[in-house]
Design a protein around this nucleic acid. Structure first.
Ligand SMILES: [Mn+2]
Ligand SMILES: [Mn+2]
Ligand SMILES: [Mn+2]
Ligand SMILES: [Mn+2]
Lengths: 240, 240
DNA sequence: GCCTTTTATTAGTCTTGCCTAAATTTCTGA
DNA sequence: TCAGAAATTTAGGCAAGACTAATAAAAGGC
């Protein structure tokens, strides 16, 4: 009897995975509780059960770290989530601010073979609509170090790679001003005292708060490369 | 706080719905237990909770009947299930023997808006790949009285409308011999002592047991109408 | 109409996953 | 260093949904 992870277990593993940014640091109980909106004792209880199942290493009061097995399970769920997001956008015309909640439930209900078919149907996309990388079927996840827009300085020419916020309001706003993965922009000015930025995107002047800038991951662009061009490694998001 | 039905509750309601063929007869505890492969006390317990929620009328030892509310919920889940089946066949190239198990889980995870989009994307199909009718968003289900193939007699010219069995083996066999919804055939002979039938389909002679014949719903065809033609009211199932 | 078989319910238990309140450990800052 | 604050675990409960064993009702056979 192989014990299939419950929806709750899958959500905990996913949360732990994304909270332990690199693979080293231990994730605190409080962080998990906030991420999943459950009480601290609920997390303590689940942690013990995950440790019993060999999903996490656990040292009381010190936090948890995913084991190989836990990481594999988390990556499977994340893979499901991101492929479902791409599929909903590409096939059913969903916009990128609508897919997250839908995928949050479907990720637990799809079979491995359904996800594999979706992946093939989509032509093996490498990123989801928010620029998040898609793990392969055997649990490989290509992760790149990137700076946030907030870390950029005046004059830099940037390409938007990824959005770290899933709230519909933020995504709708970013879409409206053109800050989608693949878009490029130039930093015109950064106010030293509050981090307020002014971007040039498509010839338009665009003010961006430090708060919002922290949620965008970007890469620096050579100054001689073309501007405002989609990436070939990201699914184009057509939402005219 | 509106209490969203759990997966378990949805499965019970769906089972009760399909066991109460017309809307009148009361469904027995034993039938539900067998249909869902759970123990009799589990069913007794769930029935009481469904009755408390106003999903069923319940008279101890006499069985249950869905209320309006229970029927509505059941039909929503059945609608989800059948539209998902069509979608998997049409969009991802699933065959009709693969879709049932996948849909059995997805039916509980899709939102009403996702299902509505799927329905529109597919062009508002009226039947699923097995010929089962698809309830509308407001809970209408067009049900027709039909005879089974087993009820047919020698010489009758028939159209296959619906398959009542979801097991992959049966569906694969039916597909192989061409007995899909939309196909037509003629009854050549019926053996009186065991109900064994011999059909003419596409000029081929085909023996069908009484057991299998009981699982096919058919309608009688005028003798002057064309033979072996797809129905326009059923999604074509292309599985060459 | 009784007696046996079948069906159904009740009683009691278990697991999962959540909660609040209380106790405990760790962290932090004066 | 050490007291108060913050984080964590323990204790104890609850609800859903499954189970087995025991009891009760309904149905069938003669
Ligand atoms: Mn989820
Ligand atoms: Mn995403
Ligand atoms: Mn189901
Ligand atoms: Mn079907």
């Amino acid at each position: 009897m192989i014990a299939v992870p419950t929806i709750s277990v899958e959500n905990y593993l996913k949360a732990i995975f994304s909270l332990q940014k690199d693979g080293e640091e231990r994730v605190k109980t409080k962080a998990i509780a906030e991420s999943l909106d459950v009480s601290l004792p609920s997390v303590s209880g689940m942690i013990k059960s995950l440790a019993d199942d060999g999903m996490v290493e656990y040292e009381p009061y010190r936090g948890v770290r995913l084991t190989k097995k836990g990481k594999k399970t988390a990556l499977r769920v994340i893979r499901n989530h991101r492929l479902i997001e791409v599929f909903l956008v590409q096939t059913l015309g969903y916009s990128w601010d609508e897919v997250h909640n839908e995928a949050e439930r479907l990720e637990h209900a799809v079979s491995d073979t359904l996800v594999a078919r979706i992946e093939a149907f989509l032509g093996f996309p490498r990123f989801d609509p928010h620029g998040d990388p898609i793990p392969t079927a055997d649990g490989e996840l290509h992760r790149r170090e990137m700076m946030t827009l907030g870390d950029a300085s005046s004059g830099m020419h940037l390409k938007v790679e990824r959005v770290l916020d899933q709230t519909p309001e933020v995504l709708q706003y970013l879409d409206r001003v053109g800050l989608r993965p693949g878009a490029s922009c130039r930093v015109v000015e950064v106010l030293a005292f509050d981090g307020q930025m002014f971007l040039d995107i498509d010839g338009q002047q665009l003010p961006i708060s430090a708060t919002l800038a922290a949620k965008l991951l970007v890469t620096e662009l050579d100054d001689d490369s073309e501007r405002d061009t989609g990436r070939d490694d990201v699914q184009a998001v057509d939402r005219s």
